[in-house]
């Protein structure tokens, strides 16, 4: 559990990936942000028992990952992080929802199981889209794009800080956890009471650091606004094509269950 050192929380690599120069990296961030948003809305709006119709949506992360030349294993490891959280939400479903929706042989499949799997797929799809968006755009550029898309600036700045905060928090967390691990000599730890003080300590350290960072920002004339000179991107034909293409595909896939249609095509029965 405490092996959070190293790669598990190393989101820093994402920023490095964002420096690559591929056709998808070069797209205007706004196009990527809007397309990803549309993707997420389509996926999330599916019916709670839906599974098959969501699967074709995998094509979006797959294509971006290929064109963006992203390391498959690394991205996968990042996506896997969301699975426990999705399961935490989804696992209650089989307990409460015992309506039999289908039978495989003599096995009754409860609606709860199906909706649990559905939540899992949703989580994986949205997480992969979001992580890939960061990997091909870079978080600062995303914030900038949101700002250009008329999100209030303070909000964009907050978001940028939040991102920086995550690193600070994980850094401090890793250090505190390591110190604790060393002092407990690899035993399971000190129990919940000490865990509470560990978290308190962590929050305090994080707060102090955030304060010092703020101090350093003020010292360099920060007045609530983060300016940027780079990424003079513009929204052109390529961006329109990218957005138009993907969004129409999403809408089609959202309205028609592609696997079922294909299946119907082969067996000759239309739904």
């Amino acid at each position: 559990m405490l092996a959070i050192d190293g790669s598990f929380l190393d989101f820093k690599q994402l920023d490095l990936l964002a420096l690559r120069q591929t056709p998808v990296h070069r797209l205007d961030p706004r196009a990527k942000v809007l397309t990803t948003l549309c993707f997420i809305i389509c996926v999330v709006s599916f019916d709670r028992y839906q599974i098959s119709a969501m699967l074709p949506f995998l094509i979006y992360p797959a294509v971006l990952m290929a064109v963006g030349d992203l390391p498959f294993g690394y991205i996968m490891r990042k996506i896997v992080i969301v699975i426990p959280f999705a399961l935490m939400i989804g696992l209650f479903n089989p307990i409460f929802d015992r309506q039999v929706l289908m039978q495989i042989g003599s096995l009754d499949i409860w609606g709860g199981w199906i909706s649990c799997i559905s939540i899992l797929i949703r989580a994986i799809l949205t997480a992969s889209a979001a992580i890939i968006l960061v990997a091909i755009t870079g978080f600062p550029a995303i914030c900038e794009a949101l700002e250009k898309l008329k999100m209030p600036q303070t909000f964009a700045v907050q978001l940028l800080f939040l991102y920086r905060y995550i690193f600070v928090l994980t850094d401090e967390g890793v250090r505190t956890a390591r110190a604790r691990q060393l002092r407990t000599f690899g035993k399971r730890g000190l129990g919940i009471r000490h865990f509470g003080s560990l978290v308190g300590h962590l929050l305090l350290r994080t707060w102090e650091r955030a304060e010092r960072i703020h101090m350093a920002m003020l010292a360099r004339g920060f007045a609530g606004e983060i300016h940027s000179t780079r990424r003079q991107s513009h929204f052109g034909r390529t961006e329109l094509l990218f957005m138009g293409g993907w969004i129409s595909l999403f809408i089609l896939l959202r309205l028609y269950n592609a696997p079922q249609l294909l299946g119907g095509l082969f067996t000759g029965t239309m739904p």
């Binding site: 920023d15 420096l19 870079g138 978080f139 600062p140 920086r164 650091r209 010092r212 960072i213 101090m215 350093a216 920002m217 940027s228 780079r230």
Partner: peptide, 11 residues
């Protein structure tokens, strides 16, 4: 660490 809060050295 406190002084370097932007995504790249340039920034």
């Amino acid at each position: 660490e406190d002084q370097l809060f932007m995504p790249t050295v340039y920034d």
